Amino acid sequence: MTEEERRAQSEQTNGEPVLDFSVGRVNENSTPYIDYHSVDALLSLQHPRTEEPAELTFYITGQVQELLFKLLFTEINRVRDLLFDDRIDDALWYLRRIERTQRVLTACWEPVSTLTPREFANFRNELGSASGFQSYMYRQLEFSLGNKVRRMAEAYHAVPWLHEQVTAVLEAPSLYDATLAVLHRRGRIPEKCVPVEFAEPYVPDALVEEAWGAIYRSPEEDPQLHALAEALSELNYQYSRWRTTHLLAVERIMGHKPGTGGTLGVEWLRRVAEHRFFPELWSVRTEF
């Protein structure tokens, strides 16, 4: 529908909503809104396994987080590609949107944190060995940000299509790889500081830390790089907030029980929460 058609429709209804949902629909058993968002398919995907009312809270918030993982993964790869193309301002715009999405992701723990230990215990056994640790969108998101660990990809070996998909992300450049390439092209770091083996865990480099230090000491020399440094720091800050809130929600719900995926539960989450992407952007702060 064009803007002219929308304006004409609004005039016909005196600005009131159109109540004839047959207008613009794809099939007779739907509405345009359902068609666009696939709402019927989306709302058919909830299958709690117990009569415990709180299970639906756990179920839906988990699905929402998976959708947000997908959105973040897509946007982070977009930023990575923009950085490789030296479109720094465009990358900064999308990093702004990523930060807003991360806040929504963290807020997803709020409904979950209201579960009492008894409510969670009433359906926890139905999880079996299922664990958020197994989320392939989460794993791809971690890889895209630079937290590369090959054995985490090998965990999906039993599912060939999934193993191939996750491994492809493992072996692709990360957001930080693209950032380091920008620093090299701007003459801030030598070529040897830019990774060429993208599947390997990133090792912090003193020369990279020195480069970030120079950028922070004289932000006016390259405002774009200074803004990029702060945007990446914000991204990591928001991600760490999500991890820490996850830790607190789990500890509140089930204490120090082992995780369903075989981890130590809270202790494992505490260790994960201490990880930092873009390490030199954090270590450089000590010198100021």
Rank of each mutant, 00 (worst) to 15 (best):
105 L>R: 07
185 R>A: 03
36 Y>T: 12
122 N>A: 15
30 S>H: 03
212 W>L: 09
78 R>M: 11
128 G>I: 09
231 A>P: 00
202 Y>K: 03
212 W>E: 01
107 A>N: 14
177 D>A: 05
90 D>C: 00
227 A>S: 13
112 V>T: 08
251 E>C: 06
262 G>L: 07
61 T>F: 14
273 A>V: 09
5 E>S: 13
102 Q>A: 13
107 A>L: 13
10 S>Q: 14
56 L>H: 13
256 H>M: 09
47 H>I: 08
188 R>C: 07
216 Y>A: 09
146 G>Y: 04
200 E>Y: 08
144 S>Y: 10
206 A>H: 12
223 P>I: 11
190 P>Y: 13
211 A>M: 07
79 V>S: 02
38 S>H: 15
263 T>G: 03
249 A>S: 14
217 R>G: 00
171 E>T: 10
140 Q>A: 11
41 A>N: 07
208 V>A: 11
286 T>M: 06
219 P>Q: 03
285 R>E: 10
224 Q>S: 09
214 A>M: 08
101 T>V: 15
82 L>C: 05
218 S>E: 14
114 T>S: 14
168 A>N: 10
195 P>V: 11
19 L>W: 14
14 N>H: 11
269 L>R: 04
80 R>V: 00
153 A>T: 01
172 A>Y: 05
10 S>V: 05
189 I>A: 09
34 I>Y: 08
206 A>P: 08
46 Q>D: 08
113 S>M: 14
285 R>P: 01
17 P>M: 05
237 Y>F: 14
285 R>Y: 06
84 F>M: 07
248 L>Q: 11
130 A>P: 04
75 E>N: 13
114 T>M: 11
193 C>K: 08
144 S>E: 09
105 L>A: 13
98 I>W: 06
264 L>N: 11
260 T>P: 04
197 E>I: 10
155 A>G: 02
258 P>K: 07
156 Y>C: 02
265 G>K: 07
246 H>Q: 10
28 E>H: 02
168 A>P: 02
70 K>V: 11
248 L>K: 12
191 E>V: 09
114 T>K: 15
253 I>H: 08
250 V>Y: 09
228 L>T: 02
1 M>R: 12
82 L>G: 02
274 E>T: 14
73 F>K: 05
255 G>E: 00
99 E>L: 12
13 T>R: 14
149 V>Q: 12
101 T>K: 09
116 T>R: 11
74 T>D: 13
173 P>M: 06
185 R>P: 01
279 P>K: 03
70 K>H: 11
192 K>E: 05
208 V>N: 05
141 L>R: 02
182 V>M: 08
10 S>N: 03
76 I>E: 01
283 S>Y: 04
269 L>Q: 02
21 F>T: 13
176 Y>V: 05
125 N>T: 11
95 L>E: 03
17 P>I: 04
40 D>P: 00
51 E>R: 14
67 L>W: 07
261 G>N: 05
62 G>T: 06
116 T>E: 06
21 F>A: 11
73 F>N: 10
14 N>K: 08
147 N>T: 04
108 C>S: 15
113 S>K: 14
105 L>F: 13
